[in-house]
Simulated scan of single mutants.
Amino acid sequence: MSQICWLGPQDSFPNPLLTPDPDPSVPGLIAVSERIYPAQLLQAYQLGIFPWYSDEQPVLWWSPDPRMVLKPNDFHCSNSLQKCIRHFYEDAQAELLVDADFGAVIRACATSARKDQDGTWITHEIMDAYTTIHEQGYAHSLALVEQGEITGGLYCVAIGGMVYGESMFSRKPNASKIALAALSAWCIENQVAMIDCQQETKHLRSMGARPLPRLEFLQQLQISLNQSNIVPSWKFNKQILTHWL
């Protein structure tokens, strides 16, 4: 059994294809570090690795097997959700804002109460690192605004033809689902084959996400990252939701 490596600021991640699960007692844990550096964060995503830890822990880097993914065409738009989307779309005062206030969206994800979960993995260090890569053009936010207030949204990371979903929040029923519907429709329009959802939850499964063996995920990831024909624009609005209407 190899030892889980401790990363310094300039160190590279072990490749999950070559060194899966250094410690079988902690499946999916690839590496540990003291801090998150934006350049290291981007390298991690390109290898199919993501950070997930609590305030009292060091930074834990994961590549789970299986990996939860949502193929955009498999997004489950139920009749009730379709009605919510139509109501939002037809409301002249409702807006879908993309990259308008990344900080507000990630803070809302960090502070939203979640069932059976105390605290948050979105620490101040996480917020700082993702804000930096947002400024570099790699992280994006979607926010639903109704009557001047943000009611829901999500943030994600996008590199090449790959989108990595990070976190969602709702301050109104179905708001995060509408945001995910918008992201899925955008992915379909831009030939993005899958949205990485990282870990399995009942909520994600209900939206159409499915587990994928890690090897298959990592192989598809490299194909997506190498798609030079995809140069997506993140300038879109609620018109994208007509895909589901």
Rank of each mutant, 00 (worst) to 15 (best):
I4E: 00
C5S: 09
L7Y: 02
P9Y: 08
P9C: 05
D11H: 06
P22F: 06
P24S: 08
S25N: 10
P27T: 04
G28V: 00
A31K: 03
V32I: 15
V32L: 12
S33L: 08
Y37A: 08
P38F: 05
P38R: 03
Q40P: 04
L42V: 13
Y45I: 07
I49K: 00
W52V: 09
Y53T: 11
Q57F: 11
P58S: 15
W61Y: 04
S63Y: 04
P64V: 11
D65G: 08
D65L: 11
L70K: 01
P72W: 00
N73L: 14
D74K: 13
D74G: 09
F75I: 13
H76K: 15
C77K: 07
N79C: 11
N79G: 11
L81V: 13
H87Y: 03
E90S: 02
D91M: 13
E95G: 10
E95P: 06
V98W: 07
V98F: 10
V98N: 05
D99Q: 09
A100D: 14
F102Y: 10
G103Y: 02
G103M: 06
R107C: 14
A108T: 01
T111D: 13
S112T: 15
K115I: 15
T120D: 09
Y130F: 13
T131L: 12
H134K: 07
Q136F: 06
A139T: 01
S141H: 06
A143H: 06
A143S: 15
L144Y: 09
V145G: 05
Q147P: 00
G148Y: 10
T151Y: 02
G152H: 03
G153V: 11
Y155A: 05
Y155F: 15
C156D: 08
C156P: 03
I159D: 00
G161L: 12
M162F: 13
G165L: 07
E166K: 03
E166C: 09
M168P: 03
S170C: 10
P173V: 04
P173I: 07
L180R: 02
L180Y: 00
L180F: 14
A181L: 08
A182W: 01
L183K: 12
S184G: 09
A185L: 06
I188C: 04
I195W: 00
Q199G: 05
Q199Y: 04
R205S: 04
S206Q: 11
R210L: 12
R210Y: 03
P211A: 08
L212M: 14
P213K: 10
R214C: 09
R214K: 12
F217N: 02
F217W: 02
L218Y: 00
Q219D: 05
L221P: 00
S224A: 15
L225F: 01
Q227T: 09
S228Y: 09
P232C: 09
S233D: 14
K235C: 13
N237M: 05
K238S: 06
Q239L: 13
L241C: 06
T242W: 03
H243L: 10
H243A: 11
H243T: 14
W244K: 05
W244S: 07
L245E: 01
